[in-house]
């Protein structure tokens, strides 16, 4: 039984890796654009902040990992558009196998994106190599999970590709800028500083910055908030994906 479920998961993972590899443009741009952004903003942050390299690297990382909601969302939305999700649901495979098989490849993409940006930050921008890589890995995993859950949940509730693009573009700009990914929270107008914690990006950024600096205690609250957001959205996504959608008047 468990062997069957694992096998179905593996088959589904392999298939989704294939699909991702055949449509890589979006994720490639979400890895290289933030690198360019880091190079452009580095002098500015250096002058405006002490510890400017930390903001230079983590800001675009958080901003573009929110943009990557679109990558996650697309991988789910296409299954709706192509009506293939229903075919999978009708198969013998347990629904959890299907969900895990669908999630693992995009989750890997998110981890690769964040890792690539951190490595670039250390190698090119001059971010000191974090002492405790385990904490950084934990931060990357947690933030990646939250993005995965949010992107999947989003794709299950939007009614069209247009909706999804609007939600991810607007979401990335709002969540990123309010969370301090563009302009550090300390430099924002006072009233905005109060509003910043309402953005998941704020917690993502705090998690990542504390992890890179090796501040374990500082990571605790952001980690809990990010995990909470991830779990809530993963619950919604799982519920919607298991039920399917039936017919739709858009998409």
């Amino acid at each position: 039984m468990i062997g069957d479920a694992l096998y179905a998961t593996a088959v589904q993972i392999r298939h989704n890796v294939l699909l991702r590899l055949r449509d890589p443009a979006q994720i490639i741009s979400y890895i290289f654009l933030p690198m360019a952004l880091m190079l452009v903003f580095e002098p500015l942050y250096q002058r405006a902040l002490d510890g400017g390299t930390l903001q230079t690297v983590t800001g675009p990382l958080i901003l573009f990992s929110v943009f990557a909601l679109g990558v996650v969302g697309n991988s789910v939305l296409t299954e709706r558009e192509w009506r293939t999700w229903d075919r999978l649901r009708a198969s013998r495979a347990p629904r959890t196998s299907l969900l895990i098989g669908k999630a693992v490849p995009v989750f890997t993409v998110l981890l690769v994106q964040q890792t690539a940006l951190l490595v670039f930050g250390c190698a090119v921008i001059g971010l000191p190599v974090p002492r405790d890589l385990l904490h950084v890995a934990l931060a990357v995993l947690l933030w990646g999970f939250a993005v995965l859950a949010a992107g999947t949940a989003l794709a299950t509730v939007v009614r069209s590709r247009g909706d999804l693009m609007l939600a991810t573009d607007l979401g990335a700009i709002l969540i990123g800028s309010l969370g301090g990914a563009l302009v550090p929270v300390d430099l924002m107008p006072g009233w905005l500083q109060h509003a910043a914690p309402a953005s998941p990006g704020y917690w993502g950024l705090a998690l990542m910055q504390n992890a890179v600096q090796g501040d374990l205690r500082g990571m605790l609250v952001p980690a809990l908030v990010v995990a909470g957001i991830g779990l809530a959205l993963a619950g919604l996504a799982t519920y919607r994906l298991s039920r399917g959608w039936g017919r739709s008047d858009l998409l």
Binding site: D4, Y7, A8, V11, Q12, H15, R87, L88, S91, R92, A93, S97, L98
Partner: peptide
């Protein structure tokens, strides 16, 4: 391969 696989064929 996908639909055979998710339906348990090896």
């Amino acid at each position: 391969q996908l639909f055979g696989g998710v339906n348990g064929l090896r």
